[in-house]
């Protein structure tokens, strides 16, 4: 899964009618795994110690980045990718998607695990908490985003990366899967607006 891609054979890269050039890339960036391991270890320590500041840090930083990236990808990057040439989309995808493959699950785990522990610590989980309904609304929004992201977006992301590893990638298939990636990123971006409303309501 971490093999290095070969440049597509056939006509010289970029030549009219020839296959688009495919940069070397790793589907799972190995160096990134070290960072992920450090973050997960620190998260476990924060939960084990039940340290309010650390839990707050992981939840706010993870949630802020998760929301920001979803909005940015959904509404800024996604439409730009949609207007790129196939060759440009391929080059962008080989550099962008492997990073997303590690970054997003890490941010989601950070946000949810620390958020649950934080809510418990400050007593927000109790049914008697006056904004409990808002908390449940946030679970529902996260749940819908999880179904879209894990069920539609991530499989499309992986399928594109593996298609790009082929000696002769199918541009039509890549285009179709990228379209699914762009649409689902847009939907999760829109849902993050609901997250912002809910979280600011809870925090106010």
């Amino acid at each position: 899964m971490v093999d290095v891609a070969e440049v597509a054979p056939g006509a010289p890269p970029g030549m009219a009618g020839g296959p688009p050039p495919i940069p070397e890339f790793q589907i799972v960036p190995l160096r990134g795994l070290i960072l992920v391991a450090i973050v997960i270890a620190a998260l476990i320590v924060a939960i084990a110690g039940n340290w309010l500041w650390a839990l707050d840090f992981f939840h706010v930083v993870g949630g802020g980045m998760w929301t920001g990236i979803d909005l940015f990808v959904g509404f800024i990057v996604g439409p730009i990718i949609g207007r790129m040439s196939i060759a440009a989309r391929i080059e962008f995808s080989t550099r962008f998607m492997p990073k997303m493959l590690l970054l997003m699950p890490t941010l989601v785990t950070m946000t949810l695990a620390a958020g649950w522990q934080l809510a418990r610590h400050v007593g927000n989980l109790d049914a008697g908490y006056h904004r409990h309904g808002w908390l449940v609304a946030s679970y529902i929004v996260v749940g819908v985003m999880a179904v879209i992201a894990i069920g539609l977006l991530e499989p499309a992301n992986l399928a594109v990366l593996f298609e790009l590893k082929k000696p002769q990638p199918n541009p039509e298939l890549i285009g179709r899967l990228m379209k699914r990636f762009i649409y689902t990123a847009g939907i999760t971006g829109a849902m993050q607006v609901a997250t912002l409303v809910i979280m600011t309501r809870i925090a106010t």
Partner: peptide, 22 residues
């Protein structure tokens, strides 16, 4: 079917999270 499974797990998880710790 796999997506339907994820949806069921999410629904169950949200239901339980909404009721915990009581």
């Amino acid at each position: 079917l796999a997506i339907a499974t994820i949806a069921l797990v999410v629904v169950g998880g949200v239901y339980m999270a909404a009721h915990l710790p009581k």
